[in-house]
């Protein structure tokens, strides 16, 4: 029982709901150059860069499902996009197990770009192809850039949310 309570799902849901609420109330109401910054996506990629591709995908899937439930997108659209975004960001662990903040930010930018660009692509398969326009060339860089900036701030929350402790490195005894 204690393991379940300390597990990632029991933390993912409340944190996800809170993040979603912040997105809906704060970030959705204050667009930057007509682009709404994506706080939930930033949290997903932060979880990805701190915990790896697998956990990033699970975080993206769960928070994306919550996002779908709160909006009018077909259920699974944001889950798929954010799942792929979280997974892409988590590939930073292929280079180093404990990335520096700047490296984490770079992969957060990549992950967020993948996540945001996937949404209209999924829309093509669901019959909503009208979102693939040149506007994407503005939307994706702004959302990805904002996620890169927010990532270092959200990394501790992402780590706690996924139930992962920060690695502590010890010098080898001579």
């Amino acid at each position: 029982m204690r393991t379940v309570l300390a597990g990632p799902l029991t933390r993912l849901l409340p944190v996800g709901l809170l993040a979603l609420s912040v997105q809906r109330v704060v970030f959705a109401q204050h667009p930057l150059n007509d682009v709404k910054l994506q706080f939930v996506l930033a949290l997903v990629v932060a979880a990805g860069v701190t915990c790896g591709a697998d956990r990033g995908a699970v975080a993206g899937f769960t928070l994306g499902l919550l996002y779908d439930l709160s909006g009018s997108t077909p259920l699974g659209t944001m889950a798929l996009a954010y799942g792929l975004g979280g997974m892409a960001a988590g590939y930073v662990h292929a280079f180093t197990p404990d990335p520096q903040w700047w490296l984490a930010s770079i992969f957060a930018v990549i992950g967020a770009a993948v996540g945001e660009a996937t949404i209209p692509l999924v829309g093509v398969f669901t019959g909503e192809s009208g979102w693939i326009t040149t506007d994407l060339l503005v939307i994706v860089p702004i959302v990805a850039g904002a996620a890169g900036l927010l990532c270092p701030l959200l990394m501790p929350l992402g780590r706690w949310m996924m139930g992962v402790k920060r690695k502590k490195w010890k010098a080898m005894a001579e």
Binding site: L20, Q23, R24, V25, F27, A28, Q29, V35, K36, Q38, V40, Y67, S70, G71, S72, T73, M78, E116, I119, P120, G123, W131, I139, V143
Partner: peptide, 10 residues
């Protein structure tokens, strides 16, 4: 409220 996403016009 408005749509939270950039790909929802609601």
């Amino acid at each position: 409220g408005g749509a939270p996403s950039n790909f929802q016009n609601t």
